[in-house]
């Protein structure tokens, strides 16, 4: 078997439970950030940053990405970069019109 990659790797239930609890804590944090208006002008950025941490946890552990080969991680990075570029360039267009 290939060393260290997902084929022979079973994440333990304890890890999944820890990830699930972390997701619920982050959910509470994101409500707090938006409702308490701690950082009024940053609330959108803050919410999206917390959402990205949550998405990262789901990807890394629930979707086993942490244990996948670099090739697959690279492909995902490519897809996400394409979307970021698309949104970024559209904003440059709309913002300076």
């Amino acid at each position: 078997m290939k060393e260290g990659y997902s084929e022979d790797r079973i994440i333990t239930a304890g890890t999944y439970t820890a990830v699930w609890l972390a997701l619920l804590v982050l959910l509470s944090a994101t409500i707090a950030v938006s409702k308490l208006r701690l950082l009024a002008q940053f609330s959108a950025v803050g919410s999206l940053a917390i959402a990205s941490v949550k998405a990262g946890l789901v990807l890394a552990f629930f979707m086993h990405l942490k244990y996948e080969r670099p090739f697959l991680k690279g492909l995902l990075a490519l897809a996400v970069s394409a979307l970021t570029l698309l949104i970024g360039l559209t904003f440059v267009d709309v913002g300076y019109r």
């Binding site: 994101t30 409500i31 938006s34 919410s47 999206l48 959402a51 789901v58 979707m63």
Partner: peptide, 23 residues
């Protein structure tokens, strides 16, 4: 199937702040 389900979860993780936390 699990990978697909988790992906649908990730999409919701972004939809939630965009529609419910925007105040």
């Amino acid at each position: 199937t699990a990978l697909y389900w988790h992906f649908v979860d990730v999409v919701w993780i972004y939809l939630y702040p965009l529609f419910y936390l925007l105040t």
